[in-house]
Design a protein around this nucleic acid. Structure first.
Length: 592
RNA sequence: CGGGGCGUAGCUCAGCCUGGUAGAGCGCACGGUUCGGGUCCGUGAGGCCGGAGGUUCGAAUCCUCUCGCCCCGACCA
């Protein structure tokens, strides 16, 4: 490809409202353009990179037995009604009515279609294990898209679906994906971390997310650097500190004007946040009825883990309660607690540490007042005592007791053991060896292709632009001609022909613009190798080859140019493959 | 969905408070200049000031509504 023909411009200046490095660079370098919130066009550079990523994904999933299929983006509502998700999922699902009045939707994921295919294609245990996958568009109308390609509404996902006769078979495919995902990360030079995760709306029991650790990440992760325990904060376990034992003192009500926050209370009462029981008002939704008010009580120095609440209550959704909902049970916002509220109108969940602590400060449900010396079991009682608090920096690792580190990550991929969640609802059954009908045991495994590219851009860039790995760069080498006249111009054109003939993916900057522009743009685009041909380079003996990551280039003799470049490309690709071969194997318990 | 911000030329922005003939830089076209890190000079094209309504002799500017985009939070199969 000649730069003079390349569709898509580089930008000198950025749209003002872009603040993530990967997004800035992908825009500036002419990879992507935004059409609407969370909806992007891929220009040729990005499309070429995406094709390469997709190729790697195909190779790795094929290697664990995958067969590629392609399932529709538009689904009839019926199959989602069958699985139950038509009603469970909120406006994140884009729905429409076709001309015949039939309810339709845009696919968010494809478990339902796989289920339908199983009904029609799988009859016998002899047909399993099986693994199908696709690279297909998903649409999720997120309430808020952000971060450029990191969180979008329309995106291509590699999604695979394993089909097995039993849990042991599922576990084998789960393990295979676990390693394949690390291999994929290695091949695109993106460090990944597998963390235990919530199963959320996907259902099922066991799940891991593959995270790229980065400050721009939207997920909070708890990592133990000592033993390797890692989990999404939503499901992270940790060892609670011991509650200081103390004789229960008498409950007393004190005036605490303008002390609506934990911080205010600490200052006013001269205590630490660990002496306070914090009550968080939540609303659990699910089904058609009104939301259930939930009082979640944790110690003042900790946060409520919303996912723990959702999972405990089996609610479809848990959100912060509105003021009217709080007042309805007799509680006073800012001075709230379970003491004295109408218990018939609320569910009270208490963290186990609060339950074992004594003499805590709680809201008095009276404007401007708190109680001192509140004790669980005497002054208030939860409908349920459970692990409600989310992990925090320095909390004890549940495995080894060492302090956990909290960090942020971008979820690049995930793997779920679905079990029979979909096969049962969709009626996807097979006949086993004993002639009995059984539900198929499923797993589902996703990787966001565009998000992967964005993460690689985030990981690999410098002040001059992108620095893409050889495996997914849109071109392997950028041939920059700084030749002003013949014969140097002809030499550049010849080298371009030779590289192309040798199968090298080369971007030829043949434009009649200043050297500075060509160099700056070559750096910005992040192409791994740069070959400069000019009067000067020819006088010096050939062409100058420089890696994007190197400070200086070297002169390559004219007749060794193609061979040298081919060798460099092969070396870099080999290094990435070798890194992939070092990928971790599953080490956790056999049942996950 | 709650809070905040922004919509003016292809891009980045000024002008708005205090209403009176729509601006700059970059990019683009043309001419010259320069030639190994976004050269320099000149000429030119390019805008229904997001949309609708209102106030006014007169609206980019003031008011109302609306649409879009961004950020924080909530949410996220």
């Amino acid at each position: 490809m000649r730069v003079s023909n390349l569709f898509g411009l580089t930008l000198r200046e950025l749209p003002a409202d872009v603040d993530i490095a990967s997004h800035q660079l992908l825009l500036r370098a002419g990879y992507v353009r935004q059409l609407a919130a969370g909806i992007f066009s891929l220009l040729p550079l990005a499309q070429r990179s995406m094709r390469k990523i997709e190729h790697i994904l195909r190779q790795e999933i094929d290697a664990i037995g995958g067969q590629e299929v392609s399932m529709p983006v538009v689904h009839p509502a019926e199959i989602w009604q069958k699985s139950g998700r038509w009603d469970d999922i909120d406006d994140t699902m884009a729905r429409f009515v076709d001309r015949r009045g039939r309810d339709m939707l845009l696919a968010m994921t494809h478990e339902e279609v796989v289920g339908e295919l199983c009904v029609s294609e799988i009859n016998s245990y002899r047909q399993m294990p099986a693994l199908v996958y696709q690279l297909q568009t998903k649409f999720r109308d997120e309430p808020r898209a952000r971060g450029g390609l990191i969180r979008v509404r329309e995106f291509v996902m590699k999604d695979s679906y394993s089909l097995d006769t039993d849990n042991a078979g599922l576990h084998e495919q789960y393990k295979a994906h676990y390693t394949a995902y690390f291999r994929i990360g290695a091949r695109v030079s993106l460090p990944l971390l597998a963390v235990r995760s919530d199963t959320g709306m996907m259902g099922g029991k066991v799940a891991h997310e593959f995270m790229y650790e980065a400050p721009i990440g939207e997920d909070n992760l708890a990592i133990c650097d000592s033993c390797g325990y890692s989990a999404n904060r939503e499901v992270a376990e940790f060892v609670k500190p011991e509650a200081p034992g103390a004789e229960a003192a008498e409950l007393s009500k004190v005036e605490t004007p303008d002390a609506k926050t934990i911080e205010d209370l600490c200052t006013l009462l001269k205590i630490g946040p660990e002496g306070i029981a914090k009550t968080v008002f939540l609303a659990a939704e699910g089904g058609d009825g009104p939301a259930t008010l939930v009082l979640a009580v944790v110690r003042g120095d900790m946060d409520v883990n919303i996912v723990a609440v959702r999972n405990h209550l089996k609610a479809a959704d848990v959100r912060a309660a509105h003021e009217e909902e709080i007042v309805a049970c007799g509680a006073v916002p800012g001075y709230g607690s379970p003491i004295g509220i109408d218990r018939s109108k609320a569910v009270v969940l208490v963290d186990e540490l609060v339950a074992s602590s004594s003499n805590l400060v709680l809201g008095a449900n009276d404007f401007g007042f708190h109680y001192l010396n509140g004790n669980h079991g005497r002054d208030f009682e939860g409908d349920q005592v459970l692990a409600l608090a989310g992990a925090f920096e320095g909390a004890g690792c549940v495995n080894c007791g060492n302090p956990l580190r909290m960090t942020r990550g971008v979820e690049v991929g995930n793997i779920f053991k679905l079990g029979t969640r979909y096969s049962e609802s969709m009626g996807a059954r097979f006949t086993d060896e004993a002639g009995q009908e059984q539900p198929i045991v499923m797993g589902s495994y996703g990787i966001g292709v565009g998000r992967l590219l964005a993460c690689v851009a985030e990981e690999h860039h410098d002040e001059r632009g992108l620095v893409l790995p050889m495996s997914i760069a849109p071109f392997q080498v950028c041939l920059v001609s700084l030749a002003r006249k013949e014969p140097a111009k002809e030499v550049a054109a010849e080298i371009y022909q030779e590289l192309q003939a040798a199968g090298v993916e080369v971007l030829f900057d043949d434009r009649d613009v200043s050297a500075g522009i060509k160099m700056t743009e070559a750096d910005l685009r992040g192409i791994p190798l740069r070959l400069v041909v000019s009067e000067r380079s020819i006088k010096n003996g050939g062409a100058e080859l420089k890696a994007r990551t190197a400070a200086d280039g070297e002169i390559i003799p004219r007749d060794e140019v193609v061979g040298t470049i081919q060798r460099r490309i092969a070396e870099e690709l080999d290094a990435l493959r070798q890194a992939a071969d070092q990928s971790p194997l599953w080490t956790e318990g056999d049942d996950g």
